[in-house]
């Protein structure tokens, strides 16, 4: 297995699950921002392409003890991604400052090995060519290329916004590698009216997310598998934190 790089900047999210109502605005904002094609019938969730998916969590108890929570799942941008080393053609890599796992569509041959490796189901395949209702393709943003059929894609943390923020900093004479908190946020972060998502540089004490990930309520999905995700979740509810990883019956959840 290859070794993984450490980066000075580490873009990360802290998603407060106690603040997510599951409204789906983030999913829509993501599709519009990243030129993901709409699907007339998206009821087969195993074949509907959306980089960000909101899962429904339940505490498993019967009425009236039942509780529900919603968990938005972008790409975890793992520190030790299981998908990167398996790609036979280096179409995906984690080699840029910030630690975002890249996916280069013109390089991808569509073998789907990375999808098999990802336990978060964060990777999606273009089963067909993307199509938009007539004229709707005019609303595509110029920021993200449209993917043809046969390639794998995934959440990029709206990487183009990172590039735009750096360019803006350059033009304004600021250091592109020292962005302020909020200079670069993802489309879902921006769209969420509840502010459930906080985005920033986990390594930078000036960024809010830096403190948030240290909260005793913070956890990551499937931490023990060693993927080292850059997406953190927070919940004051123990049962929610317990759903973040597989626990044997006698094991205690942290926090």
């Amino acid at each position: 297995m290859s070794s993984f790089k450490e980066f000075k900047i580490k873009w990360g999210m802290a998603i407060d699950l106690d603040k997510c109502t599951g409204c789906g605005a983030c999913m829509v904002a993501c599709q519009a921002e990243n030129n993901i094609a709409p699907q007339p019938d998206a009821s087969n969730k195993l074949k509907s392409l959306n980089w960000l998916v909101v899962y429904e969590l339940t505490n498993g108890k019967s009425f009236p003890e039942h509780e529900v929570a919603y968990l938005p799942r972008p790409c975890m941008q793992c520190g030790k991604p299981s998908c990167v080393s398996v790609c036979p053609v280096i179409a995906t890599d984690k080699n840029e400052e910030g630690g975002i796992v890249s996916q280069v569509y013109p390089r991808c041959i569509g073998c789907r090995y990375c999808m098999a490796s990802c336990p978060y189901h964060a990777r999606y395949f273009n089963w067909f060519d993307p199509t938009w209702p007539e004229g709707m393709d005019k609303t595509l943003t110029p920021d993200v290329s449209v993917r043809p059929r046969g390639v794998v894609e995934k959440c990029s943390f709206c990487h183009h916004r990172f590039m735009q923020a750096k360019d803006k900093a350059r033009v304004e004479g600021r250091d592109p590698n020292a962005l302020n908190d909020g200079d670069y946020i993802t489309s879902c972060t921006e769209a969420c009216p509840n502010g459930a998502i906080v985005f920033g540089d986990v390594n930078n004490p000036a960024h809010k997310v830096h403190e948030l990930v240290k909260s005793k309520y913070a956890f990551r999905l499937l931490e023990r598998l060693g993927t080292d995700p850059q997406v953190y979740y927070l919940s004051r509810r123990e049962w929610v934190r317990r759903l973040g990883d597989n626990y044997l019956e006698n094991e205690k959840v942290k926090g």
Binding site: E97, V104, V144
Partner: peptide, 12 residues
């Protein structure tokens, strides 16, 4: 120059 040869620097 802060240049990098990382994939995502030049691909979108």
């Amino acid at each position: 120059t802060n240049s990098s040869n990382a994939c995502f620097v030049c691909h979108k």
